[in-house]
Structures are given as structure tokens and as C-alpha cells.
Design a protein around this nucleic acid. Structure first.
Lengths: 144, 144
DNA sequence: GAATATATTAGAATTAGTCTAAATATAGAT
DNA sequence: ATCTATATTTAGACTAATTCTAATATATTC
């Protein structure tokens, strides 16, 4: 079900077309959430997205933000990044890449793809298939 | 401050000695938490550990379990694994390895070290030093 | 456009984890 | 051993992220 596409492709082709193509009904709320989320590559929390969406004058409930993010994750439009128990980010760039997380500043930074390891199916536990590769390198500020 | 040692070393040398050596005062609660946690290599949640500790008749508060886990993480005795917003595991095996997480079953499985990528400092963001490499491969049950 | 299915909503509920301030225990000096 | 300072533990209140509920609204199908 998950497709490999980029947020720039989505911006180019239009949100309605892409959602339709993936069997997702287009609603006012989903459109504004997608518009906000995919405006650029970014890492946002559910709450930040809720604020961003509603700061434009639109009215979308928090439950819908959560529902829609869940839907977009299932469809592979966004990636969920679990930093710690109270920090879940949604990444509007769904291309293959990973992250550096600065524990001092809270910054979440994209990692160049060439640094991403690759795994072969044979190495996975018996009877399973790969779902996602989540790699977070935690860094701290160097004391100079 | 973080040291590289194994839980088996701790079992061999005794908890009191190792805690002392790292400047950690030994208390009744810390001893029983360490005994329970390092009895074997395992992945436990704070709550599971709280239950395990208290099921032996000992009385240790939940706050102390959290405090002690935090202390042990800072000292490098245990590793924190963030699976999702409501699943934080503590890994009593602090040797260099990573994890497979089966999203269908909830199983968290150790990954062989040879699969772990290695990174060079030069590739880290400017002015930062490596703190931890957290790699979780999410897998799902194959539909046969 | 009526019937059916899907989506949205406010607010309650849940849950993991943190905080507070009082009580207790430990360590260091005498 | 006793005193004093410091560190630790505790119950329970609190917070924040997320999920649930069940009523309402919107979309899709016939």
C-alpha cells in the first residue's frame, strides 16, 4: 500500500489528484492539512501542525489532525519519527533518508542518504518483511 | 561518563561494586532494581520493571523506578529504546547492537552487531559529537 | 435525492511520565 | 557512635500526548 513518492511530486501534481489516486477521499480538512504539511519538507509535531492549520483561519479539530496524520502515515505520505516518549515528529519528506537529533538543542536534521545502511531481507527475523528503517543518530554539542 | 560494559560483567562483578565504581550510592531500592533488571539481557518497560520488582515482595515506588532508570541511562548501564509515543523500553544489554521491532506482534528483537552501520565523526552536524546510534528496523509478519 | 458509508468534532478518558514537598536514609565529620 | 548535611525515596498531584466516544456533518452510491 505504501508508495514511494516525494512531497515535491505531490506539490507538482496537486493534492487532490494524489489523494484520489490512493483511494483517499478529499475533504476540506484533509486538503488544508496536506497543503500545510507538504508546503515544504519539514518535521512537525501533531500539535505544531494543528496550530499551523488553524492559524490560517481554517477550523480543523485536533482529533482530525491526529486522524489525518495516521491516515497519511498508513498511506506512506509522511514518516513518523519517534524521538522520545513526548516527541513524535511527522516528516513531510518521505524519501529514503534518516535523522540526526541534537539532544542539546532539540534540532532534528536530515541525514544524507549515502549514510543510510542497507539491509537484505535474509537478515530479517524469520517470517517477517521490512516495514521501515528508522535510524536516529543522537548528537550533543561539542564542548570546545 | 558513559562506560562500555556488559550486563554479564555486572553480574560477574556484583552490582554494589559496579555502582560504587561509577559514583552511584547503593541503596536497597537501587540494588533490587539492578538485580531484577540485570538478571538477564531483556527489554522491559518502566511499568514492567515496577511490577517485577514489587512482585518479589519488595516495596519500591514507581517514582523510584523512573528515577533509577534515568540514572542508569545517564551512567550508560541501560539503553532507552523509543518505539513509539507509548512504548519506551529499557535494554539491560548495553553492548553495541540494534533492534528489530515486529509491529504485528510487538516483539523487540536484538539485531546482530555486524548489521550495524558505522559513522564517522566528520559526517555529524558541525560542532556536535555522537551520543548514540538508535536503529530500529520495523518489520511485519509476512502474509504467506 | 434518499440511503448508506465515511469523516469530523468536542470533550472525556487514558496513559506514560514528571513534579512536589515531606519523610527517610546515607555518608562524612567529629 | 552521634550529629549534620546531603542524597534518596515516596505518595499522590500534575501534565501532556494521544485515543476514544458517540453525536453530527459531509460525501458517495444507488
Amino acid at each position: 500500500m505504501k508508495s514511494d513518492w516525494s512531497s515535491s511530486e505531490l506539490r507538482r501534481r496537486g493534492i487532490d489528484a494524489v489523494l484520489n489516486e490512493h483511494g483517499v477521499n478529499v475533504t476540506r480538512q484533509r486538503r488544508i492539512i496536506a497543503d500545510t504539511l507538504f508546503a515544504r519538507n519539514q518535521h512537525v509535531t501533531a500539535d505544531q501542525l494543528f496550530e499551523a492549520v488553524n492559524s490560517t483561519g481554517a477550523r480543523v479539530s485536533k482529533a482530525t489532525v491526529y486522524n489525518t496524520l495516521g491516515l497519511f502515515v498508513r498511506k506512506g505520505f509522511v514518516r513518523e519519527i519517534f524521538i522520545d516518549a513526548s516527541r513524535t515528529f511527522y516528516d513531510s519528506n518521505n524519501s529514503r533518508h534518516h535523522h540526526f537529533y541534537n539532544v542539546d538543542t532539540g534540532d532534528l536534521i536530515d541525514m544524507k542518504a549515502r549514510l543510510v545502511p542497507h539491509f537484505i531481507d535474509q537478515d530479517l527475523p524469520e517470517g517477517t518483511a521490512m516495514d521501515a528503517v528508522d535510524l536516529v543518530i543522537r548528537v550533543r554539542n561539542k564542548v570546545s
